[in-house]
């Protein structure tokens, strides 16, 4: 049993994730990760869950895909499981039925948005109280919770970046600049939709959020050797730059085909179907 409290993915895991090994292209995997995290976030808001628990869920979710392929588990199910597990870890337990109801709405809305009636207004049809939908989702939720624990080797310790950001901004004399603070804070939240929290240490991610915020607002920080501000926080430029790239990727314009593809692959069944249809095109290991 390893004693690392803050586990990060290994280089091998990053270079070849289990999903990629199964033939899912890198960009598609990143999009699915981001979409799964958006679902967690939306569900968290609808459930009025604490941000600490929602962020924890997103990080556990991101770690999960470094040890498991999306062919085996759907991003919808694992998102539910992560939200449920994190609610227990952060001592603000959610009811299973609430999570299931909220996910049912979100998934129905998602499939409506790519369905034949996408131009019409979305109407939610609640599931029946003792119906199959509920029991299927409930079983998926229980399985996902256990699988997350098991596959992460019961490493559920998560470090959140917010207090580090506050300290760094104060140190840089930007603590009272509201614009910088809220932008950097926002980048940290958006970064939860990328795998960076499972790949880099917190200081690196925080520096990336400060870099993006200050660059967008044209605020100059000492960036010429030998006085580079990120070195103050023991981070490397290449890492900071790479994290920034991951975050900025979220904002690129997405074609409607891309969106359709991602929203249509939220379950492992969809993923398997897609893999079968596209197997000839893709180089399989």
């Amino acid at each position: 049993m390893s004693n690392h409290l803050y586990p990060l993915a290994s280089l091998v895991q990053i270079e070849q994730t289990p999903s990629r090994e199964d033939g899912i292209p890198e960009s598609l995997e990143e999009d699915l990760r981001a979409y799964g995290c958006k679902l967690i976030y939306q569900a968290g808001i609808l459930l009025q869950q604490k941000q600490v628990a929602v962020a924890t869920a997103q990080i556990l979710f991101q770690r999960f895909w470094f040890v498991t392929s999306m062919k085996q588990f759907g991003v919808g199910d694992v998102g539910m499981g992560a939200l449920y597990l994190s609610s227990k870890l952060e001592e603000c337990p959610l009811r299973m039925r609430d999570i299931i109801n909220v996910y049912d709405v979100l998934l129905q809305r998602a499939s409506h948005s790519i369905g034949p009636k996408a131009d019409q207004q979305f109407r939610y049809y609640p599931m029946s109280y003792f119906g199959d939908t509920f029991y299927n989702l409930k079983e998926a939720l229980v399985v996902a919770e256990m699988q997350i624990l098991k596959r992460l080797g019961f490493n559920v310790h998560v470090v959140l970046p917010y207090n580090t950001l506050v300290n760094y901004l104060r140190l840089l004399g930007l603590g009272s600049n509201k614009e910088v603070c809220s932008r950097a804070w926002g980048y940290l939240n958006d970064a939860l939709q990328t795998p960076v929290y499972a790949m880099y240490q917190i200081p690196t991610i925080v520096c990336a959020s400060i870099l993006l915020a200050t660059r967008h607002l044209s605020i100059a920080l000492p960036s010429e050797p030998p006085t580079c501000w990120w070195e103050l926080f023991d981070t490397l430029w290449d890492d900071v730059w790479s994290v920034s790239g991951h975050i900025m990727r979220l904002y690129r314009p997405e074609s409607s085909e891309e969106t359709q593809l991602v929203v249509g692959m939220l379950t492992k069944k969809d993923v398997r179907r897609w893999l079968e249809e596209n197997a000839t095109v893709l180089p399989r290991p």
Partner: peptide
């Protein structure tokens, strides 16, 4: 799902 005390025990004893 998993009992809360089991999760706490694993989390802290780790």
């Amino acid at each position: 799902g998993l009992d809360m005390s089991a999760i706490r025990e694993v989390k802290f004893l780790r």
